[in-house]
Amino acid sequence: MMSAFLEQIAVGLHIPDGFLSVPVSIAWWVLTIASVAIAVRRTSGALHERQIPLMGVMAAFIFAAQMLNFPVLGGTSGHLLGGALAALLLGPWAGILVMTVVLALQALLFQDGGLLAMGANIFNMGVATALVGYGMGMPLLRVFGGRPWGLALVGFVVAWASVMAAAVLTSIQLVLSGVPAAIVFPLMLFVHTFIGIGEGLITLAALSFVITTRPDIVSSLAAVVGPEGLQRRVGGGTIGTVTLVGMAFAIGAALISPFASGDPDGLERVAEDQGFLERAQDAPFNILPDYTIPGIDGGLSTILAGVIGLLIVFALIYGISQMLRARAEAAER
């Protein structure tokens, strides 16, 4: 019972209605509508009429693939979220659309995630995972794709990062809606550090399988990985190694995270120092007592911190990959 409980809270990430405040729900609906509109425009240009049956079936595929699970520890099981995988296999915009449809179906048909919260859920698990998966994955593959272990490493890291991005976004939304940051951030990040490992392992094995079996379908991906990277399918051995490295990495991150956001929580401290918390608690106007503007002010710093953090990670990865590529090109000459 408890493990099923943890599993749902952990893998689910689907926020039900009732948890997000109205302004937060609406803000993320706006972001989601904008992202999906861009994705629709970008995909309808290419392969228009073909694309609809393909993406529709792909959405059903992601949905079904989420049912394929494997036992991990103590009755919990690992399975896929799929955003990074979809983006790497189908491209970022098709990936976003496919995940949007998956999440909309889950909310409409199975009440997995709320209706009002759907904007946030689509953004966290569809848009962000696809963008992280593709945005990080392609530059990294251009650098490491040629190595025999390149695909495995990149697939793992990118899928892990996509789950973490979704967890961070979910936490931000919950905090903006009044759930205490000191509890939500460590809890969410800690649990998803491990959930992300499962996502990473399945993603890398699936990518490797598809690329070695049908490189023609995923031509842009296969081109980046190159012939040397395609020589062998990633098997249990490689994945075992990646698991060990990933576990060490994840446990390290999990050990650090309480210090990063423990007591007294950094952001709350900032809010307190600025007097936001006090203002948030006894707002001068009582029309929307729990969604006061001061609360958003305090939370704005949370968003900013999250965005800045993500930007730094992106910049680092991009910079390193550019540097490595330049070096590789120089070596070729």
Partner: peptide, 29 residues
Amino acid sequence: GGIGWRAAVVGQMVGTLFLRSYERSERIY
């Protein structure tokens, strides 16, 4: 096997399901 091996199996199942879905979508089209 260990977790790595299990994950590899599931990953290949996901990959297979992807290919079957992809081919199905081509037939549908």
